[in-house]
Amino acid sequence: MKTIMVCLKRVVDYNVRIRVKPDGSGVVTDGVKMSINPFDEIALEEALRIKERGEAEDVVVVSIGPADIQQQLRTGLAMGADRAVLIECNEDISSLTAAKVLLKCAEKEAPDLIVLGKQAIDDDCNQTGQMLATLWGRPQATFASKLELSGNVAKVTREVDAGLEVIEVDLPAVITTDLRLNEPRYVKLPDIMKAKKKQLESVAIADFGVELSSKVTAGNWETPASRAKGIMVNDVDALLAALKEKDLV
């Protein structure tokens, strides 16, 4: 296959302790570490492995967001992507809008495979890949933990509630990644230097002609109710006594 398109989202790093702003308008992101959504990193790793096996020629990483997402795209290039497309957008957009913009991108790049995370760890929506596949009129294989390519078909093992489901999809297709698909590589310093020379194309989101406003808007944000402080017990007898008191055993 020729091209694999990988979608990367910039999110608050998974190690950051999230705090809701006192005025309920969102979460604190000023001065907070930002990273590639971990599921998208897995998506990129998978694309790179496919290319390294000689089964693809070109890996392009695409991201939508403010100019700062350049950092995450450069990380993607340092991991091994061949080129990057930065779709500059300074407002919050929904998964549907993102899917419509990515579709325009897919129409231009004509990839055989689009790989992205099953969800972003900020909004936890778990929508974009499915919407993109549907709008593109192509198959989706979500929550992938194993991907095998043979000719024009991808055999995908999916992590579902009942176990592991195996499906086959014709290419081109959209794959969304689950945690156990692979373990992404670490970026080495020389690769970061090399990545600076790779092509990073910037496009304004307005150029895609997609309506950006959303019919589902974010109202107030809240901090979740915390659980009442618990007790510590010293031994099994005390534990059993506490459980019996609550009528649980």
Partner: peptide, 20 residues
């Protein structure tokens, strides 16, 4: 996993956003 896989595809066909 059934609904998460399916519902965004339904939403996209209806051209509406989804509340997850």
């Amino acid at each position: 996993t059934f609904g998460k896989d399916l519902m965004p595809a339904v939403a996209a066909l209806l051209d509406v956003e989804q509340v997850s």
